[in-house]
């Protein structure tokens, strides 16, 4: 009897939790899909209701076609920025994490204070714009990439350094005895062993950089430089009545993080809990 009662009690707790949590966290996403599938006037009613005609694919293709296929340009730009930044971030931060964790000298503790400052201090926007202008990188993808790399390095380094500690020094020493040069130890021995932490860094920072709105807003103005996050911005300012397209746009740009989430949920959670603050 008691086990049955326990089972039923457990069932109720599950059911109530699922109901409440879905109402709060899933309903907004359902709303996005419903609104993205409606006609313009119907979407402007803001109602949570099924669309009278299901126009999801039509609206999505309208978003993709809009303004000379601007969405494809935006996706291309975002892709270049994300991939370019991630490559540099992984190479630069793993090199620092490697030497920092293995040496633990005065230089390492200086680096560690600078990283801490980099984690908490917000970027100085106008001076950064000025700097980019002076060196000719303002309004260029490369300029934004360099800025994203600089802003993300502290998080990446701290995450990789924490993981470095779990790679035994004997492994490097064995490679040294075999006659490996510093670069060989780093590329052939350390980088492959850092793989789990590198995947975490790649996933977390690619989502952050892909989703970033402030960076492109300040450092990459101009129509030809549009990024994915700024595509929505023009719908709000110019076409405030086209809510169906706005939400179709929201849906389109939410797909990449959804894919990341489905494949890498564990790494993302690991990255945000372990590397987040301890270091």
């Amino acid at each position: 009897m008691t086990t049955i009662r326990k089972f039923i009690a457990g069932f109720w707790l599950d059911a109530v939790s699922l109901l409440v949590i879905s109402a709060i966290f899933v309903v907004p996403f359902i709303f996005i899909v419903l609104t993205a599938a409606k006609t313009g006037p119907e979407a402007a009613q803001f109602e949570f209701s099924p669309p009278s005609q299901f126009l999801l694919l039509e609206n999505i293709s309208a978003v993709l076609e809009f303004g000379d296929r601007r969405m494809f340009l935006a996706m291309w730009n975002s892709l270049i920025i994300t991939v370019g930044s991630i490559t540099l971030i992984v190479l630069l931060s793993s090199a620092v994490a490697f030497v920092m964790q293995r040496r633990k000298d005065r230089m390492a503790s200086l680096a560690s204070s600078i990283i801490l400052a980099g984690l908490i201090i917000p970027p100085a926007v106008v001076p950064t714009i000025f700097l980019l202008q002076e060196i000719g990188l303002y309004r260029t993808l490369l300029g934004l990439i360099m800025v994203q790399v600089a802003f993300t390095l502290p998080f990446a380094t701290i995450t990789l350094r924490a993981f470095m500690a779990s790679i035994p020094r004997e492994i490097d020493e064995a490679a040294i005895i075999d006659g490996a040069s510093p670069l060989q130890v780093y590329f052939r021995v350390i980088l492959p062993l850092l793989r789990p932490a590198i995947i975490t860094v790649i996933v977390v920072s690619s989502v952050t950089i892909y989703n970033d709105f402030t960076g492109p807003l300040y450092f990459l103005p101009g129509r030809e430089n549009v990024t994915v996050q700024l595509t929505m911005y023009s719908y709000i300012s110019q076409f405030s009545s086209q809510w169906h397209l706005l939400f179709a746009n929201v849906l389109v740009i939410t797909i990449p993080p959804l894919i990341m989430f489905m494949f890498f949920q564990r790494q993302i959670v690991a990255g945000l809990t372990s590397g987040a603050i301890k270091g």
């Binding site: 630069l92 090199a95 001076p127 000025f130 700097l131 510093p182």
Partner: peptide
Amino acid sequence: TYPHWFYLPAAIVFGVFFLVPTLA
């Protein structure tokens, strides 16, 4: 095997694009 110049690429990028604007 743990040369200090491994800091250099990161230090340059972080210095130029974060520290310099912050101090400026």
